[in-house]
Amino acid sequence: MSLLTVAALYFLVPVYWLMVSATKNSSDLFGTFGFWFANPRPLEYLGDLLTYDDGIYLRWFANSVLYAGVGAALATLLSAAAGYALAKFDFRGRETVFNVVLAGVLIPGTALALPLYLMFSEVGMANTYWAVLVPSVVSPFGVYLCRIYAVASVPDSLLEAARIDGAGELTIFRVLVIRLMSPALITVFLFQFVHIWNNFFLPLVMLSNSDLYPITLGLTSWQGYADRQPLLYQLTVGGAFVSVIPLMILMVVLQRFWRTGLTEGSIKS
């Protein structure tokens, strides 16, 4: 219990600091105690954040939702299809393909950013939405997790029964497999969403137009000018706190699916 308490404090204290700091102006950020409020005006500062520079923060927020939402959804679908195929279909080179996927898990994303930029530049897709979206739909970890989960949760007898009843492979995948694998798919979606939402290096390499920035890159650009415009300190902290809220909401909404998946195996018919 004590270890869990320490772990909870480790993760929650920075969020608490962000929440408190988001209610302060730039002078109070440096001139008052960091873990308590000082003349809080959160609604006023939130309005400043959303209206600064013609509402550029809202543009960055929408970009992050686009990159993370679409990227995570497509990555989950592709991971489910690839993991199911690797688990339930016997074809030549299956283990080689899976080993390549495992190798992809071990390669850091920063090592691939520059080659990806050169490739996208060659086809004229650099500095576009596609430059961030297309790499985001590939998740080697998602493929690995889906294969492991498909082996354990999708019985061959159920697949054979569906085929005998005349169901096609696409119907089996859409109606049966996705439903049986839903806990793993929720996990892949959440991991990929958080990864894309917090991704900084790939957009930094791919994008030069500030209108295409996600929140991470936009807030960093503000921080770089904060020495000349002190207001940006407060806007950066407030923007960082607002950017955490969607992740917290997503975690609360999706955790019930994990509980459902964990208890399914304990229910007897």
Rank of each mutant, 00 (worst) to 15 (best):
W197P: 03
L212W: 07
P214M: 08
H195P: 00
L202T: 13
V242W: 09
T216L: 02
G239C: 08
F193Y: 12
R256T: 05
L204S: 12
V205P: 00
P155T: 12
F189E: 01
L247S: 15
F141K: 00
V177G: 06
P155N: 14
G238T: 07
D227N: 14
G166P: 06
V188Y: 10
T171P: 00
A226S: 14
V151I: 09
N209E: 11
A167H: 13
Q192W: 13
L250M: 14
R174A: 14
T220I: 04
L207Y: 08
V237Q: 01
P214L: 11
V143H: 05
Y149D: 05
F241K: 13
F257D: 01
G142H: 13
L232I: 07
P230I: 01
F189P: 03
V154P: 06
I148Q: 15
G224Y: 02
G239N: 03
M181H: 07
L232M: 06
L247A: 15
V253A: 05
V154Q: 04
A162T: 06
Y213N: 03
V177K: 01
I172M: 05
M251V: 15
W258A: 14
A184N: 04
I178A: 05
G261C: 11
L247G: 13
Q234H: 15
A240P: 07
L232T: 03
F141Y: 13
V188E: 00
I245A: 12
A152T: 13
L158S: 14
P214W: 11
Q229W: 02
L250V: 12
G166M: 06
L254M: 09
Q255T: 11
M206E: 07
Q234G: 15
A184I: 10
L250D: 06
G166W: 11
N198W: 02
F201M: 08
I186M: 09
L202I: 12
M206I: 07
S208Q: 13
W197V: 04
R259Y: 08
L235W: 10
T260L: 08
P155Y: 15
F200Q: 09
P203G: 09
L207Q: 12
L204V: 05
L219R: 05
F201P: 05
L232E: 02
W197I: 04
V194F: 11
R259L: 12
